[in-house]
């Protein structure tokens, strides 16, 4: 790509070359964010049609965070995720068909149907099964960083968590231990303002999670989580620092969840005006507008069509995939088989 196709920076005053990506790269960021958005929207429809068991915690609105952070990671770097993991999984490279099939509870799912929506993951692309306990990843991730150091690799681990988790004891223990051990970890807090229905200001007198970094002697930084280029730039610096031994870093990505907390949430705890304000900052609209400055409309339209086709294929794959064998429910609790025969 030649330099004249570069997408303008989100923050014109910042260093050139760090906040900018070329148009081809920008288009790929757009495609991944759109894939997550459309994945969530289409999953919701097939969920309502009764094709997906359980519940859903959806990621619409926060796509710039997962895509921006994972864009600066290597395949060998690892992430931990949360009960809202679809975006993280697709951004880190979990196979689209396997992710969809997992939601459907099929044998071809990335966890063989044992994980489901809240535990999407794939070790082969560096994603632990998502941890659906709020704050659960904040201590486990320290072990990833510790292992990388002990194995003398230059891998980095990213812990995605919400602002709600910052009030868990695990947040404190994990960040403090990572700090005192200088572990190669980026703690990526997605502050979407609400823990389920509870606004953050009711649960913390400190409005910015990033401010808590000072209490641990680590660098904290507030990032516009609705701007994928800003996320990518800040994450790029944080990951590079962590890889160079200057970790951990706490990033707070200010974002907003467009959908409810889970599939039955009618969002009575927040105003439609507030929602409209944040939807006006839709990260996908923003990057599409930027890309339209340098790319022809039909290129973007072709990308949209490609996303739709990929989702058509993934949904069809999930529908056609076999169910797990019922008896497979009894395997994989242990590496070595120990269980007695279940009583008939």
């Amino acid at each position: 790509m030649s330099s004249d196709t570069r997408v303008p920076s989100a923050e014109p005053g910042s260093e050139p070359g760090t906040t900018e990506v070329d148009a081809y790269h920008g288009l790929e960021l757009y495609r991944r964010m759109l894939l997550i958005r459309r994945f969530e929207e289409r999953v919701y429809l097939v969920y309502l049609q009764g094709e997906i068991p359980g519940t859903l915690h959806q990621y619409q609105g926060q796509e710039a965070v997962a895509v921006g952070v994972c864009d600066v990671l290597r395949r060998t770097d690892w992430i931990t995720s949360t009960h809202r993991p679809h975006g993280h999984a697709l951004a880190k490279g979990v196979d689209l068909r396997a992710a969809m099939a997992e939601l459907y509870g099929k044998a071809t799912g990335c966890c063989g149907g044992k994980g489901g929506s809240m535990h999407l993951g794939d070790p082969s692309v560096g994603m632990l099964p998502a941890i659906a306990i709020v704050g659960g990843g904040n201590t486990v991730v320290t072990g990833l960083g510790l292992a990388f150091r002990l194995m003398h690799t230059d891998q980095v681990a990213v812990c995605f968590f919400g602002e709600g988790a910052s009030n868990e004891g695990a947040f404190h223990e994990g960040l403090n231990f990572a700090a005192v051990q200088h572990l190669p970890i980026v703690f990526a807090c997605e502050n979407n303002l609400y823990g389920a229905s509870t606004p953050f200001h009711l649960t913390s007198l400190v409005p910015d999670v990033a401010a808590r970094a000072a209490a641990y002697g680590v660098r904290g930084e507030i990032v516009d989580g609705m701007d994928v280029l800003a996320v990518r730039e800040a994450a790029g610096r944080a990951v590079a620092d962590a890889r160079a031994g200057a970790g951990p870093i706490l990033l707070e990505l200010k974002t907003y969840r467009f959908a409810g907390h889970s599939r039955g949430d009618v969002r009575g705890y927040r105003s439609r005006e507030e929602e409209a304000l944040w939807k006006g900052r839709d990260p996908i609209v923003r990057i599409r507008e930027r890309l339209a400055l340098t790319l022809a409309e039909d290129v973007l339209d072709a990308t949209d069509a490609g996303v739709e086709a990929a989702l058509d294929d993934a949904i069809e794959f999930a529908r056609q995939s076999p169910l797990p064998r019922a008896e497979d429910a009894l395997t994989d609790a242990y590496a070595t088989v120990i269980s007695r025969e279940p009583t008939p």
């Binding site: 072990g143 960083g145 292992a147 005192v180």
Partner: peptide, 28 residues
């Protein structure tokens, strides 16, 4: 001290670090 690691009084961090390291192939 690289392999005998003293921690803060943080049982969640101790257990979590062990789980995470074990997931990466270590034997804590």
């Amino acid at each position: 001290h690289e392999r005998i690691i003293d921690t803060p009084i943080s049982e969640k961090a101790i257990a979590g670090a062990a789980v995470g390291a074990a997931l990466m192939g270590m034997r804590p």
